[in-house]
Design a protein around this nucleic acid. Structure first.
Lengths: 349, 349
DNA sequence: GAGTCCAATACTTTATTGCGATGGCTGGCG
DNA sequence: CGCCAGCCATCGCAATAAAGTATTGGACTC
């Protein structure tokens, strides 16, 4: 019986499974050693920090270099320094060590209480597609986790974020980066919406002065005071005196106002337009609506670091002005998904 | 002497350094065990695959769960299954194990021959900003590495990629995904460039039929035969009969032709325009120029997997139609870099 | 109720790692 | 010039951790 077991081991070593390989000689403890030596400058100093005996650390690194056939350090008098290979390895060592911490924290959180729900605030100005991308990312990372999106005005969302009633919030800039961090996710140009038969539509870019007295703004000071104020400042800097309309986030409403020749308005470039309307950029300026995810630096949501890391990938494949299609990964060989010059999808409604 | 050393150890355990922590109980070998158990369904089967004794594996997992205070597996009759926490952990385990392999391969390559240069092909249609982003990513990952960008026509670049004379290539789609893989990096809408005083400029979206007989194309069959053919097909599908001009990639040249009323032309939406010109989308279609990085599946460039991984992050922060600014990471609290509604940068030349 | 399959446990054996000591090397300093 | 100090590599030995062997006990099947 015991003989047959041992034979199995032998046999399996030659199967395609995943038996011993060179890579197995590299463990997280080696990463820690490498980081410590690189930071301390000597094996001796690093050893006291690990903590470990100097001899043990020296041996550990030598055996690693031997197993991997990589010379990580250059030993010369009075110390030890990184080789080019070691410098790259150091970079990855730091990254992976941090990832390990994030993973453990997140998985611990899932275990305790099957993970408390992730409370994601968002403001009315955030596009739905952005919210769903964030939710998808979360569910992909934590299949059994719960994510609770809740909307609210910017100040309200920020206040709740700061009060730890939210774990993260999707907001549009500008916001005061006070007590929390932000990571941008999308930038979208702002353009002027006019009737197609408006004289302004003749021009390709609208001079700022041509908007004076006609441009209405619909942003609500209560929904996002800083953005509202910033918008007024920017308009003033361009010599534009806007009409302050009743606030609304309803794009249909805004477009109706423009169609009725009551005003012209600023809208997102990607907004679906009524057929009587068109958009024009403003000459000499480059205003955008910037969406970002905000979170407390001292957060207690263990899922957050991994989610942020994943979002960096999600908001990938820069795709100007067509906010559809979740990020597609075409890594290994497969049907080429998108033949360019391809879709006949109508972008307008 | 020996006493003082040991005292140092004691002291340092309480410093902020990086002494023993919970996370250190999780090593790569645990990841391997978790993956094996999850895939095999029983500890016994997984143990023969690792290879390891069943008892050892059982203990290893139990001790890990104990140290991390995470229940990874659910033991019931007839086997073992993942808890929700375990499912998430499994995901990260696979990812990190692959990363470890990629890291070791890349660093080994740096060591041997101080890493052979990374030969990156690109075609004339690739925006310079894309190339520089890729080069930046490479240099960031491998400070001592060399990257050699070389340009060429699409077929030439693809041929050299297939012949292993290039390690990767930035190309515009479509290309036959034959023997190599592609990973998209950017999509850019194609629009029609017309004079501002052209009657067509009155319209907001140009009906396909209005282009018939006027649209000239400048794509070179030699530079990219498939894209050329695809473009012709797409035009034909819309009933557009194009004028075939002498091929050129010089945007100034194309714009000059349009300014001289010789034709109208398809250009990238983000192209800098002469002041007499403007652009209009074509109604009912959504043509884009798709940039992608192509590489052999059986590549021998060890830097490639890590570069691809990093590029997923680099081409981040979807930023419609303003191809500037390398990706900025605003992770930890710092000056909020971009106040929205912010720049007064002129996008046109 | 015997057979089977599986995880967990007890105990033994092996491997790893740690420690202290030593030697070689280099650079600084008297 | 030579001595000392600092550093890394190596060695022998001891402690610890991990793996292996054998066994137990539970649960399901027939």
């Amino acid at each position: 019986m015991e003989v047959s077991l041992r034979q199995h081991h032998r046999l399996l070593e030659f199967r395609g499974a995943c038996p011993l390989s060179v890579y197995d000689h590299l463990e997280f403890k080696h990463f820690k050693s490498i980081v410590a030596i690189a930071e301390e400058g000597t094996i001796t100093a690093a050893a006291t920090r690990i903590p470990l005996a100097q001899s043990a650390l020296s041996r550990q690194i030598n055996e690693l270099e031997d197993a991997l056939h990589i010379q990580i350090f250059e030993r010369d008098r009075a110390g030890i320094s990184l080789t080019p290979a070691g410098e790259s390895l150091l970079r990855f060592a730091r990254e992976l060590l941090q990832t390990r911490i994030d993973v453990v924290k997140a998985v611990q959180a899932i275990h305790q209480s099957t993970m408390r729900p992730f409370r994601l605030g968002f403001t009315p100005f955030i596009e739905h597609q952005v919210i769903s991308t964030v939710c998808d990312a979360y569910r992909d990372l934590f299949p059994k986790g719960n994510i609770h999106p809740e909307n609210g005005d910017t100040e309200d969302v920020i206040r709740r974020l700061r009060a730890a009633e939210l774990d993260a919030a999707l907001v549009t800039l500008p916001v005061l980066p006070d007590g929390y961090c932000i990571q941008p996710v999308m930038h979208e140009p702002l353009v002027v919406c006019v009737r197609k038969d408006d004289p302004l539509a003749q021009q390709d870019k609208l001079p700022a002065e041509s908007l004076n007295g006609r441009l209405a703004i619909f942003s609500d000071p209560r929904h996002h005071p800083r953005a509202h104020q910033r918008l007024l400042e920017m308009l003033e800097a361009q010599g534009i005196n806007p009409k302050i309309s009743n606030p609304t986030f309803n794009s249909e409403h805004v477009q109706w106002m423009v169609r009725e020749r009551l005003c012209i308005a600023l809208i997102r470039q990607s907004e679906a337009l009524h057929e009587d309307l068109t958009t024009r950029p403003i000459e000499g300026v480059n205003w955008t609506i910037d969406s970002a995810i905000a979170y407390r630096k001292e957060h207690d949501q263990e899922a957050l670091p991994l989610l942020l890391r994943d979002l960096e990938k999600r908001f990938s494949v820069a795709e100007p002005s067509s906010p559809k299609k979740p990020p597609q990964r075409v890594r290994e060989k497969q049907e080429q998904q998108r033949l360019s010059f391809g879709g006949q999808n109508n972008t307008s409604s």
